[in-house]
C-alpha cells in the first residue's frame, strides 16, 4: 500500500484543536512535506522505558529510515543513539524536533529548536501549545500540532491500514512505496 498520487480526504478526526487550528497545524500537505523532507529527528522526552509511547514511536521511525536523536536529562544512550540533555547540545543538523513533553514545557523547546536551526517542530497527540507554535513559526519552522508522527507516517506508508485504521486516503491510482524523498 501507499498513497499513490496521494488524493486524501481532509483528516479532522480525533483532535482537540479548533477547525482553524486544525487547518493551520494539521494540514495534510504540510504533514507529508515535513515527513518527506526529514532525515534526522530530535525527540524531546524519548523515554528509556520500552513500553512508553515515545519509545514505540522512536523504534518505529528508526526502522523506517529516520535517525532519532534522544533528548533526555539523564540517559547516555537510547535505541543505540547518544542522548543529549537539551536540543542545544546536539551538534548534527536536525530536520525535525518532536515533543513528548507536557504543553507548558513546549515553548522552551520551541526556542531551542529555532536556535539549532531545525526545519520543523512537531507536538505529539494531545500536546497543544499555541505559544510554542508561534515561537517556532516566527523562527521559520513548519509546525504540526496534536498529531502522532508514527500514526501520520503509517497513514501514508500504508502500515496503519494493516491494522484496520481509517487512513482517510482515497485514490484509484496505483500505489507506490512511500519513501522520504
Amino acid at each position: 500500500m501507499g498513497p499513490g498520487s496521494g488524493l486524501a480526504c481532509d483528516l479532522t478526526l480525533n483532535s482537540v484543536l479548533t477547525p482553524e487550528l486544525k487547518a493551520k497545524y494539521q494540514d495534510q500537505d504540510t504533514v507529508r512535506r515535513v515527513l518527506g523532507r526529514t532525515r534526522t529527528i530530535a525527540m524531546v522526552g524519548l523515554s528509556t522505558h520500552r513500553q512508553k509511547a515515545s519509545f514505540f514511536v522512536a523504534t518505529y521511525l528508526g526502522s523506517h529510515g529516520f535517525r532519532v536523536i534522544p533528548v533526555h536529562p539523564k540517559a547516555k544512550e537510547i535505541l543505540g543513539e547518544k542522548a543529549y540533555p537539551t536540543l542545544l547540545d546536539i551538534k548534527d543538523p536536525v530536520d525535525l524536533v518532536v515533543i513528548f513533553r507536557p504543553a507548558h514545557e513546549a515553548p522552551r523547546y520551541a526556542r531551542q529548536a529555532v536556535v539549532i536551526g531545525a526545519k520543523a517542530f512537531w507536538l505529539q497527540l494531545r500536546i497543544v501549545s499555541e505559544e510554542a507554535a508561534q515561537i517556532a513559526e516566527a523562527g521559520g519552522l513548519t509546525v504540526v500540532m496534536d498529531r502522532c508522527v508514527k500514526m501520520e507516517h503509517g497513514r501514508y506508508d500504508g502500515t496503519m491500514h494493516f491494522v484496520g485504521m481509517n487512513t482517510g486516503i482515497l485514490t484509484a491510482r496505483r500505489a507506490r512505496r512511500w519513501l522520504p524523498s
Binding site: 496521494g6 481532509d10 500537505d29 518527506g36
Partner: peptide, 17 residues
C-alpha cells in the same frame, strides 16, 4: 513520495465513492 500536492486536499468524498 510524490512531490505533487494533493489535488483533492480538503475534499470529503461521498458515501458511494
Amino acid at each position: 513520495m510524490s512531490q505533487k500536492e494533493n489535488k483533492n486536499r480538503g475534499r470529503t468524498f461521498g458515501f458511494d465513492t
